[in-house]
Design a protein around this nucleic acid. Sequence first.
DNA 1: TCGGAAATGTTATGTTATAACAACCAAGGC
DNA 2: GCCTTGGTTGTTATAACATAACATTTCCGA
Lengths: 160, 160
Amino acid sequence: MSAKRTQKPGTSRPSQRSGPQHPRAASSSASLTDNDRSVLSALQAQDGQPVSAYDLIDSLRGGTIRYPATVYRALDRLIAAGLVHRIETSKAFVACNDGCGASQPLFAVCDECGQASELKTRSVPKLVHETVAAEGFEVTGMSLEVRGLCHQCRPAADRA
Amino acid sequence: MSAKRTQKPGTSRPSQRSGPQHPRAASSSASLTDNDRSVLSALQAQDGQPVSAYDLIDSLRGGTIRYPATVYRALDRLIAAGLVHRIETSKAFVACNDGCGASQPLFAVCDECGQASELKTRSVPKLVHETVAAEGFEVTGMSLEVRGLCHQCRPAADRA
DNA sequence: TCGGAAATGTTATGTTATAACAACCAAGGC
DNA sequence: GCCTTGGTTGTTATAACATAACATTTCCGA
């Protein structure tokens, strides 16, 4: 396997700092690596359908990503940059689909089609924040996910 | 390893069958099995500290639970009955601490001590429900989790 | 030019969860 | 009584998800 070494890791350079494109995410998104961009592209192509880390590896074979660690490292950075979210209840990942100005997303995940819709709401995270703050809890992050049937799948399910 | 088969599952009996257990009563806790009760007790003893399925197995060895499938089956029923919740962001389980007939729980999980506090709020799940309903989404369940520092751990973290 | 921080390649392993199937056991109908 | 039926369990095996560890490479600043 190490024969492939000729491919030279340096190909994936720490970025061509292309300027800030993500107001809310402190720093970071300027410094994406090639691997990061590969993973992000693959996720964006899925358009709201969460993809597992191992499916990402499969779909990126032939590129520079061949190991779990590689894709997980990229995902870690993308998540830190606010460009990707992890859907906990699906154990999978989606690209952020709004500018993610609402830094705490609320996802509606369809049990039928798997689609994860990122809802634009400021009031939900705000209320959550207030609720836990009242208990003396200091927030560093949230995972807000709803499972159910999306408006596409609901009619089909109702007929059944 | 099918030689072990001669040992017949019955030898390690469903435990000292503690009496007749209705197959399934209308609601929750009437239809718990011995395994369910073992798991529930172990979780309750942790008092808000989430426990992984495998830690449960470890702590219940010597009892009737020796395999992943056994504990996961018990957890499935307990969760369905609303007696246990899974903390997605911790990949672990806690006993419900609020009677929980009521609503969808909101958990505040401390990054420092791991404690998962189930907050009593009706307004948060209500707002979440309204928000997704406005998109035509039909809710079957929610996972609402906040990560951060609890009021116990916050002072310590501030000093550091 | 040196040295350190960061990204990667790679192997190995750890952790979480489920599939599959045989055996068991209560309950109900005959 | 004797089946059938359905749910629980025991048990093995494996799938799916995630990270540890370490050597190597690259970039960049002192």
